[in-house]
Design a binder for these strands. Structure first.
Lengths: 187, 187
DNA sequence: GCAAATACTTAAAGGCTGTAAGTTAACGAG
DNA sequence: CTCGTTAACTTACAGCCTTTAAGTATTTGC
């Protein structure tokens, strides 16, 4: 009965890795316990329940994504910043599909401030486009929608029916986004 | 032991309704059986397994969405068509969140042609914008991404952190989409 | 009216969640 | 260094879900 040294943090990281391997929805207390050679019940000392576990993975993923996006954004402005951010976003989603899926759950009660850094950074991108409220928020929502929509449709295989190169379409979407942000239509 | 008259179709419709009520992920063979006052095992004569059941809901939802979009599109062109389609899409997703969620699963083996009518219609919208390949496909992918991204972020509560009216942002996104389609940036 | 097909039930195995109670390892204090 | 306490993990169990197999009863069609 050697003790393994479980921790909420270790469990969360392992759960995130597991999510990337087998899909976020398949992350289960039992599967996670198996990975540590431990009985499922052992996890309940460190994590409230499976919902809590998944919320922790979501927070981890949001933090990682924010880090990556911040690094991509450093020293860039305008379209350069837009493209760097977008590629960091999409890159993270492709490398870590399970973690990315985790970011999409509703973490209501938990931590409403988790999306904050993300929102701050996307606003930073828009600084290069001279938009004032409420246009800025509208543009931000559209931008986020485009990124998330593209990435999740791509992941779900929604673009596989057409031979057109998926990366090429992505870059054209960024061109289009840049164009519309530079010339945001008046209300 | 009165016979209820189960059918794959009836089960699928009931499952879709259930999905809208309790969420697509919570649609379960047991819950569905309960609704018909029948034992879970009874469903397995009509439906292969829970995966099959969910795939059927997805196909139903895709068909319904296509119908609705077709009706919205009838007799319209250009921005008019774009807005009508977009509103039909978003309206369906809001009225039928469970069904909409179903459309996002990968129905690999099942029926690769399920997304066909959808793709055809979105191409019909783009006819008003005089785009030729590969721009047309790029624009279509961006459009779909924007719709899906907006709708799913909205459903996940991603826009609730800011007071800006969510409908207003939506219409501005459509304006922006129309603008960028009319003036699609050259490669 | 009867045989055969069909619809549903019972039974059962296996997996997952989560709680409660038991055991044992680790650790601080005297 | 040993004792007592805390914390980590296990065992045991209840409840729910999936899915298969076998049984029963109802309907259908000849």
């Amino acid at each position: 009965m050697a003790r393994v040294g479980l921790t909420a943090e270790r469990l969360t990281r392992a759960a995130a890795d597991l999510a990337d391997e087998i899909g976020f929805q398949n992350v289960t207390v039992s599967a996670l316990a198996r990975g540590f050679d431990v009985k499922p019940a052992a996890l309940y000392s460190h994590v409230k329940d499976v919902r809590d576990l998944r919320a922790r993975v979501a927070l981890l993923a949001l933090a990682e994504l924010a880090d990556r996006a911040a690094a991509a954004l450093a020293g860039r402005a305008g379209k350069d910043a837009l493209v760097a951010f977008a590629n960091a976003y999409r890159g993270y989603a492709k490398e870590h599909p399970g973690r990315y899926a985790a970011t999409q759950i509703e973490l209501d009660s938990v931590d409403t401030s988790a999306g904050r850094p993300h929102a701050d950074m996307t606003r930073a991108i828009l600084r290069g486009y001279a938009l004032s409220e409420p246009d800025q928020t509208d543009a931000l929502r559209m931008m986020h929608s485009t990124f998330h929509g593209y990435v999740s449709l791509e992941a779900a295989g929604g673009f596989r029916r057409h031979p057109r190169d998926v990366d090429a379409s992505w870059f054209r979407a960024l061109d289009a986004l840049d164009a519309v942000l530079r010339n945001w239509p008046p209300a």
